[in-house]
């Protein structure tokens, strides 16, 4: 009898998808003051997938644990994940560097924190978003699998677990078709956009989520050094699109094209 699934779902608090990010006055970070934050869409898909695995079979899943590394405000993000149907949540609290924000973690630091957490929580399956919509690194899942020395299935578009053998089969959308992988537990899965459609939270579930267990740990508790290895020199917005112009005649058009070196 294969072990039941202990799923860990790492989630990230990001600027809401509907908001256009702006660069701050000193041009080295994104303006976060007064901006709406929410659960990263890919992480939402990951939580939903874990909940669906539980709903697919009665004895398959033992626990679903959320974990997030970030400022104290990431607590709200964890709550919205709990409302989607996870059991408990842990916040790895990153201390603030000044009043408004805490250190921006790099993917490697996050992967190290997650490795320590996964080891501690005896998990055998990690389902996480393939990337966050703020820094678009798409690295943490792969790094985590590497550090843990577990199998990895990235960009999953379908996940099935064979209960008798404990083998997980994952379909991935690749160029020109679908690739199907299967691997025994333990495993790291990262989710693609088309894996599932996350449910809309019911008000009652939000109330119930308030009673679920949450705990806080610090990076020191996990024995991980989170100091940055990279320094952001500057950020710039993409160039603004300039408007076109009208030409009077064919000759003028040809003249313009020659000017641009197009013909």
């Amino acid at each position: 009898m294969p072990p039941r699934l202990n799923i860990v779902v790492p989630v990230k608090r990001v600027i809401d998808f509907a908001i256009k990010p702006r660069i701050n006055a000193s041009k080295n970070a994104i303006e976060t003051n007064g901006v709406k934050f929410s659960l990263n869409p890919f992480c939402e898909i990951a939580v939903e997938e874990a909940v669906r695995l539980r709903e697919s079979s009665k004895d398959l899943v033992e626990s679903i644990t959320l974990v997030s590394a970030g400022s104290a405000k990431a607590q709200d993000t964890l709550r919205s994940g709990l409302a989607l149907g996870a059991d408990k949540a842990t916040l790895i609290e990153i201390p603030a560097i000044d009043d408004s924000k805490s250190l921006e973690l790099e993917p490697l630091a996050v992967a190290k924190l997650l490795k320590a957490f996964v080891k501690k929580s005896n998990a055998n399956l990690v389902i996480m978003g393939k990337q966050a919509i703020d820094d678009d690194s798409n690295q943490t899942g792969q790094m985590l699998a590497g550090l843990l020395n577990w199998s990895q299935a990235t960009n999953a578009s379908k996940v099935t677990v064979d209960e008798a053998s404990g083998v997980v089969t994952v379909s991935r959308e690749v160029d020109g078709g679908t690739e199907t992988l299967s691997a025994p537990l333990p495993l790291v899965i990262t989710t693609d956009l088309r894996l599932n459609t996350p449910r809309y939270t019911k008000l009652q579930d939000i109330m119930k989520a308030k009673k679920k267990k949450t705990e806080k740990v610090s990076p020191e508790d996990l024995g991980v050094d989170i100091s940055s290895r990279l320094e952001i020199l500057s950020l710039s917005e993409p160039p603004k699109r300039t408007g076109g112009g009208k030409v009077d005649s064919v000759d003028a058009l040809i003249g313009k094209l020659k000017e641009l070196g197009a013909i």
Binding site: F17, A18, P41, I133, L193, T197, P198, R199, Y200
Partner: peptide
């Protein structure tokens, strides 16, 4: 219907950005 509307809004925004 509302839940579907919100989902499609988010799905399309992400799809347009990455796919």
């Amino acid at each position: 219907e509302l839940a579907a509307l919100y989902y499609v809004r988010k799905y399309r925004a992400v799809k347009q950005r990455y796919y």
